[in-house]
Design a protein around this nucleic acid. Structure first.
Lengths: 307, 307
DNA sequence: TAATTGTTCTTTCTAGACAAAAACCAACCC
DNA sequence: GGGTTGGTTTTTGTCTAGAAAGAACAATTA
């Protein structure tokens, strides 16, 4: 059966929305709500009827009115608002990065399903999508092998990343003056400067800024395969940095400064300067990642199930 | 329920194997058969008991003997020996490339399942794996959109392909004399020369040779992401050329000659020469692909299901 | 008549079931 | 005692089912 996480998240969002409205104010139409909550009208109607049943909005469908803006119904817990698929991703990344799974470990669909509390279908679907990240491999009729979050993985990842990023940076630096990207990168520079000023409190915010910066560079000449590759980078870094807090503030400060020289070089329209700054930044990012790879020997227990 | 395609293929292979043995000869052990048929011993035992029931081999398990080497039991039809997943791939590629699906077409899991005669699960699994090929895109809770086998796709594909192949070719040309790859590429050159001599009859064999050649180049410095990208190339070309027979003989002849100059350049250890030959080959391959892309306008009907 | 709500139909997501295939363990045997 | 076969257990591949979410169509209201 499908979970109703979409409904629950929409319901919570609707409560937020209502609390911004005053008491006695009228609600927007179902279509408008559908757009602002990002769900279908069917779900909006379910939310509205739940709200009406709880006495938060008044009855007339043509003219719904907010009854109690504050102290409304209780929200659904955060955990119930994420789809199974998303939860599987989170739990798997946790298993892999935080629990430091050994290279060569056999992945058992059934066991993971039990461990994560979902059906095997959900695990299979995730593993199939995750395959492209190069960290697992399938043995037909047998199962999956975890190849390990190793130095090799980091090196291969960064070899491609450097090729792609240099290519995009060169294109970016050669962009015509009329390109709207110049304005966007100046805005991003400002964001970097601001964040640097408040680095002590806000260093966690760098992760998102980093992703947006690199994706902006790539947007100079869009290529779906490069975009797809950046999904890998983003996912790995997102989870990796969530569980590797060592020197986080300092690492991020260094990275921001590297970004700033990189941006300066781009704004200076100098391709050699850009390349230098880009290479320097990627080299230090690579070092950070390598330092935390679990480069143990492959598990001594039978690797997978050989025939 | 699981299909028994593994058993049926193993059974057919076992018949082939037996026909190579004489009548009265004794069969290898279950373990040996398991290795040579590429299935588990469980499946081997099922095959053996079927064979015994059909009177093809004698009874004593410790010493099985071939009864009738020729005129044995009837083989299972080819179609029953391929797993559902593989059939879905074939049918989908057919739908996409041969039936020339329009860019923007919504992909309906249920409809495809009905059309292909499999359960929706099979379709979902395929689509999830196929997503990385950059030809489809997912709308959560809604469905998939086919982005089209367009000129843009071909251009983006070849931009990456050129980056990867030039990188690998440069590494290859700089390989030490002691590398075993030099011997391998000489063997491949010989295969090219042979095929060129018999091009009139054997031009279909080029597809496989092409794939092996490019994968050899890439093996000079293995990178899982490049390997993964070559899976895309291989799949696209495999199916594409199966349904685009126009000028096939001539196209392949040209490609073989290009490969040969490419190989000569590599054997000459000349990086500039190698780059030139590599670029020339990829440019003509790109032209071929572009010429056959379905570059129609996106379908005018609602693209996907917007909210 | 254009936007809004009501109703119905379709499709996606997830659980659950079950045979096929693999893996494991025990007995056997020159 | 290492290889071989006989049972048993575990896991994978695929189908079916059913509620949630989306989409389409009809009715209604201003």
């Amino acid at each position: 059966m499908k979970t109703d996480t979409v409904f629950k998240r929409a319901f919570n969002d609707a409560l937020d929305l209502i609390s911004k409205l005053g008491e006695g104010e009228s609600l927007p139409s179902e279509n408008t709500l559908s757009a602002s909550l990002g769900v279908s009208r069917t779900t909006v109607r379910k939310v509205l009827s739940t709200l009406a049943a709880g006495g938060v909005v008044s009855g007339d469908p043509r003219h719904r009115i907010v009854r109690t803006a504050h102290d409304p119904m209780h929200r659904f817990p955060e955990a119930e608002t994420v789809a199974t698929a998303a939860q599987v991703e989170k739990r798997f990344m946790e298993w892999m990065l935080r629990d430091n799974a050994r290279p060569g470990t056999a992945i058992n669909e059934l066991e993971l399903a039990r461990q994560f509390g979902v059906a095997t279908t959900g695990i299979r679907e995730f593993l199939n999508r995750f395959q492209r990240f190069g960290l697992i491999e399938k043995r037909p009729n047998s199962g999956w092998v975890f190849k390990g979050f190793t130095i090799d993985f980091a090196l291969e990842l960064f070899e491609i990343r450097e090729m792609f990023e240099l290519r995009s940076a060169r294109v970016f630096a050669a962009l015509p003056e009329s390109s709207p990207l110049w304005r966007q990168i100046e805005l991003l520079r400002a964001e970097h400067v601001t964040l640097l000023g408040e680095i002590e409190e806000r260093f966690h915010d760098f992760s998102d800024l980093d992703s947006r910066f690199h994706r902006l560079i790539n947007s100079a000449a869009p290529n779906r395969f490069i975009d797809g590759f950046y999904d890998i980078i983003t996912l790995i870094f997102h989870y990796h940095y969530q569980w590797n807090k060592r020197d986080e503030r300092q690492r991020n400060e260094v990275a921001i400064r590297e970004h700033l020289s990189y941006i300066e070089a781009l704004l200076g329209r100098s391709i050699p300067e850009t390349e230098r700054a880009c290479r320097a930044h990627l080299a230090s990012a690579r070092e950070t990642l390598i330092r935390s790879t679990s480069d143990k020997q492959p598990a001594t227990s039978k690797p997978g199930r050989g025939r």
